[in-house]
Design a protein around this nucleic acid. Structure first.
Length: 550
DNA sequence: AGTTTCATATGG
DNA sequence: CTCGCCATATGAAACT
């Protein structure tokens, strides 16, 4: 392990540490930190630093990648949460301050307040010093690391927490790399899609912005005509609702599924308008102008940005790319997109963590829902799926209720697992994922009057947390494993969305990438769950366009 | 005029 | 009495 701090002129100091966090050699001052790190990374040390998002983007710009790291800040967040101290400052400096009983420096409190992903550049180059100024920075990093090591060992499953921290740190490297690399985005293909859906873009700029393309304008006029409401704005729910009421249809809101139940000639037109309007505003020409440069879409990924440990993104709506525009994601000439999707991930996770023998047997097949249906639902696959989703989300009523009752009777251990998580939440307790991510405590803001309702809502949250958070760490481990296996190839990880990953690679490497994915999935299941009968099959497509996957 | 909330869409 | 999880992003509407 090598602890690293940078100075403001591109150099820095390296300090070799043994695995316990004590110096194993002299400090080394280097003038070109990126080059020095690149050279030393050949032996695959674990780099110890305050936070990936402070340091790594600058290294990537210098063309340097590293194999492994320990991100003190992400680890601190996990360890604090584990002790039920979710909201406390998690920077390395704050951790050091807690450790030594000194106050957290003001600039660190400020960093804490910044949204993640918006605070790079404080370790290299300008900006405030990232860590306490009056003690040598490497001492601080090492001290916090040693403390984290002790706290980690005190937990119930140290090996699992160690894996979680490693996977989380790797996720942070990957997120930075992915943001740097970008998702191949073909502007011409995007144009073709938009034009075929929306018609020619309007060249006219009104005071309020761009006027709608031809097809939207036509639909808008047609809607106004059918509702006998000249000048109506179809994107204003209030106006639409008023016009429908005049036409004899009183709807509570204008959501698609509500409108679908109304019998009026304007409805299909309105629904089409809503769909196209959405694409125009969220992923149309203006969006591309803002987010796509040199043929790549570069959103900012925020690993563990969601309480469950899923990634979030800041800007560009990267995790909500509509299916209709995915044809714009195209491989470079001579390259392919390898699109892999972990099907039925969450129910498989439930089978693995609960060790419900019967559910695990179903999860040992390629189609868990079908196996479940054959086993207990008289062949009704849809009912089996509803039952599992209902159980994982805490649904109690509705059409799924009978199916949930069947699940409860036939798969008692799986049922008990999510029920225990729900009870813990309802009674104010904390729950943990398989590897040890702990849910945040409840906000404690509810009044006595809605205590019951908020308790049940809290129960649904914790019930789902144990599954969703474990699924997220499965995916993070897969990603980290895959990255290692692809290290020496030209392949680039270009997209990740909860249970789906896209690799961009030369045609000649596609087969190797497919194998790497399959190996990584197998290894991941083994690392998390050991010898479990549960399988985690990937659906893998080698294509030139994201739209062709699925 | 700027900021916050609401309504509605997208994704898993 | 009600009752399905986690998100981001847009424009309209409401608010300061």
């Amino acid at each position: 392990m090598i602890a690293v701090v940078a100075d403001s002129s591109g150099g820095g100091v390296l300090r070799p540490l043994d695995e316990t966090g004590h110096p194993s050699g002299p400090d080394e001052h280097v003038a070109d930190l990126a080059a020095a790190m690149a050279a030393r990374d050949a032996t695959r040390p674990r780099w110890l630093w305050a936070a990936v998002d402070q340091v790594y983007p600058r290294l990537l710009e210098a063309g340097v990648r590293v194999h492994r790291c320990h991100d003190l800040e992400l680890a601190e967040a996990l360890l604090l949460a584990y002790d039920g101290r979710y909201g406390e400052p998690r920077s390395a400096a704050a951790a050091y301050a807690r450790l030594t009983g000194t106050p957290v420096p003001a600039d660190q409190a400020a960093r804490q307040a910044q949204p993640p992903g918006d605070r790079q550049g404080t370790l290299f180059g300008d900006g405030p010093a990232p860590i306490v100024a009056d003690i040598p920075q490497l001492d601080l990093l090492a001290a916090v690391y040693r403390d984290q090591r002790t706290r980690l060992a005190a937990g119930e499953h140290p090996a699992r927490m160690r894996l979680l921290i490693a996977a989380e740190s790797a996720s942070a490297l990957i997120a930075a790399e992915m943001g740097h690399t970008g998702l191949p985005w073909d502007a011409a293909a995007h144009d073709e899609i938009l034009t075929s859906l929306l018609g020619e873009p309007s060249a006219v700029r009104s005071r309020t912005g761009l006027t709608p393309p031809r097809r939207l304008a036509e639909l808008s006029a047609r809607i106004a005509e059918l509702l006998d409401a000249p000048g109506l704005h179809p994107d204003s729910p209030a106006e639409v609702r008023k016009a429908l009421r005049r036409a004899g249809h009183d709807v509570p809101n204008t959501r698609s599924w509500v409108l679908k139940q109304v019998d009026h000639p304007v409805i299909p037109v309105l629904l089409e308008y809503k769909e196209l309007y959405r694409i125009w505003t969220a992923h149309g020409w203006s969006w591309r102008e803002q987010w796509v440069q040199q043929g790549r879409f570069r959103p900012a990924y925020v690993p563990a940005g969601v309480v469950s440990g899923r990634w979030a993104t800041r800007g560009g709506g990267a995790l909500q790319i509509p299916k209709a525009v995915r044809g714009a994601v195209r491989a470079a000439p001579g390259w392919r997109l390898v699109v892999a999707d972990a099907g039925q991930l969450e129910p498989r996770i439930l089978a693995a963590v609960s060790a419900d023998t019967r559910l695990a047997r179903a999860a040992g097949t390629g189609d868990l829902y079908a196996a479940l249906a054959a086993d207990s639902f008289k062949g009704d696959r849809a009912a089996a799926k509803l039952a599992l989703l209902g159980a994982m989300y805490g649904q109690t009523g509705g059409a799924a209720a009978p199916a949930i009752a069947v699940l409860r009777g036939s798969y008692p251990r799986a049922w008990a697992y999510v029920e225990a998580a729900a009870r813990a939440g309802e009674t104010g307790g904390l729950v943990r994922s398989w590897l040890g991510r702990t849910c945040p405590p409840s906000a404690l803001e509810s009044s006595w009057a809605d205590e019951g309702a908020s308790g049940r809502s809290r129960g649904r949250f914790t019930r789902n947390f144990v599954i969703q958070a474990t699924a997220a760490e499965w995916a993070a481990t897969l990603l980290a494993t895959l990255r290692t296996r692809l290290w020496d190839s030209a392949a680039e990880l270009v997209f990740f969305q909860h249970d789906e990953v896209i690799v961009h690679c030369p045609v000649a490497e596609a087969e190797q990438v497919v194998s790497a994915l399959e190996d990584a999935a197998t290894a991941t299941a083994e690392m998390l769950f050991g010898q479990s009968p549960v399988r985690f099959p990937l659906t893998i497509a080698v294509t030139t366009s994201y739209a062709e996957a699925k």
